[in-house]
Simulated assay, not measured.
Amino acid sequence: MAEGLDTGLCTVFLESLPITGASISVFSGLAPETTVCASNRVSARIDELQFDLGEGPRWTALERRRPVLLPDVRAGSHAAWPVFAKAIRDLDVSALFVFPLVLGAMDIGVAELYCSDPGPLSAADHSTALQLADAATWQLLRELLTLAPADGTDAPQDGSPLSRREVHQATGMVLAQTGASATDALLLLRAHAFSQGRTVREVARDVVARTLDFTPPDGVTRRP
């Protein structure tokens, strides 16, 4: 959760809509990918799963720049993100509604809303969600623009369920070790985490602690 950003945004969604939980993340180039808020552990886990796996409805919403509405997320195989679809079955989530936070050509982030019971948003609730997403986009943009370069780029203190401080640090270390791009360095972390059945954050801690090193033994840059 970036320091200086408004963490009350999730509460506004919860108080205005018939949902069980909400999370908001920013993806703007003004700050590294980070979680602004998550209303509960399930919301935080939905966010973390998609970050770790690099797949899920949030990425579809960001790519298409329009909401992804899943009134029964347990139905269907979800061919675009099968691993996430399988993983979310372990959570008390039946409906998932993802709203991209966009402004003109700028992609600011995403708001993810879930319900424990299946069912669509009513027309009125969908309209309210769009209005709240628009308001959140403007608020986050204003706050991101006022952050100094050293502010808001670190996650909360280590150990927080929303913390990605070590992930960003480990990505830089893997980049230096392999000579890969930042994108490929993160993919290496994700691939290693998936193969070991761990979270990216757990693997990142090992990299930062220098108990895990991605330096190729032959000096040849690795690719995921």
Rank of each mutant, 00 (worst) to 15 (best):
S116D: 12
T221C: 14
A185G: 01
V208G: 02
F99H: 09
F194T: 05
I88E: 04
T215E: 09
S94V: 05
F97H: 08
T171D: 01
L189M: 06
M106W: 10
R198S: 08
V93Y: 03
E202T: 13
V98P: 03
I88S: 00
A191H: 07
L113T: 03
D151C: 11
G179P: 04
T199H: 01
L162S: 04
A204N: 02
R210S: 12
L103G: 08
V207I: 11
P149N: 04
A150R: 12
G152T: 04
A193V: 06
L145E: 15
L162W: 01
P161R: 06
V93A: 01
R165Q: 10
T153R: 14
L188E: 00
A148R: 15
G219T: 11
T183W: 08
S127A: 15
A135F: 13
A176H: 07
D218V: 05
V102S: 10
T128M: 12
A155V: 02
D134F: 11
R210H: 13
D125I: 07
T211L: 05
E166W: 07
Q157E: 15
M106E: 15
D184Y: 03
A170S: 03
A150Q: 14
D90C: 01
V102C: 14
D134V: 08
L141S: 12
T153E: 11
L113N: 01
G172Y: 04
A176L: 11
G159P: 05
F194C: 04
D151V: 06
D117T: 14
S116M: 08
D218F: 12
D151Y: 05
R142Q: 13
A176V: 04
G119V: 08
V110N: 09
R201V: 07
V167F: 01
L175V: 06
A124S: 14
H126M: 07
L121Y: 02
A193K: 01
T183R: 10
T128A: 13
T178Y: 02
T137M: 07
V102E: 06
A193G: 05
T215V: 07
L189Y: 02
